[in-house]
Amino acid sequence: MSVTEYIRKSQIWRSIFRHPAPYDRRNRAVVVLTNFFLHLHPVSAKKGGIALSYTWCMGGITFFLFLVEALTGVLLMFYYRPTLEWAFTDIRALRDVNTLGIMREIHRWGAHAMVITVWLHMYRVFLTGSYKPPREFNWVIGVLLLVLTLLLSFTGYLLPWDQLAIWAITVGSNMARATPFLGHEGPGFQLLNVGGFDLITNASDARFLLLGARTVGEETLNRFYILHCVAIPIVVSGLIAIHFWRVRKDGGISQPL
């Protein structure tokens, strides 16, 4: 008995992998059905549906990049404190001192790449008409995921707390003060007043809600940190699960009817 065979036959191995190795046709089906990580897939698919030139693999790469971002993000969290005192210094230390510093590069470039791959995934889905019935609602979930991807990237942009970060967020969030009715420089905010007392001021409008303050400051850093590391990833994870589940339930990978 060879060593690999010995390991494969051991009780430990068989308790982890509840199926034989995928050497024959039957077990290749079984492995996809019984493995948690593989069960996202159907057992079989149309050849044209999984052809790379058809799918561009952009949705899959987006998901993979999300996992990369989660992993590198958790590693970065060990080295980063979201306070005015430490945020910038910690990032500089990541660059100059830490062995794991390249995690920041991978995290940032992965984030840029993820924005691009989400767009290209949508581009492909549109160009193949894959949003058409019965997949209408999954397209809507996809648009929500697009928004959340952009928000993830946007909230992460602030965390290095350098000039690039704070001013990009300032420019981006300045829009919120012009929100109709809810921004203190938006049309119609004057209508929301009680007895001549404005409800919408620069300390109560949409921008204040986003920043936690009148300008980008420590409150904003804390708010964006929590959004970036906890709140948005949780929502995204949920939506990704629904998105994948519905790919399977709404007729699988799209193909001509």
């Binding site: 492995v31 698919a45 149309k46 044209g48």
Partner: peptide, 29 residues
């Protein structure tokens, strides 16, 4: 697309290309 409408098993036809994609993306990053 219709000319490629025969069913193939996801292991190995899809799972392997996914893995190659993951390796390529990782090395690119």
């Amino acid at each position: 697309e219709k000319e490629l409408s025969d069913q193939v098993l996801v292991w190995p036809d899809l799972v392997y290309s996914e893995m190659i994609c993951m390796i390529l993306v990782t090395s690119l990053l």
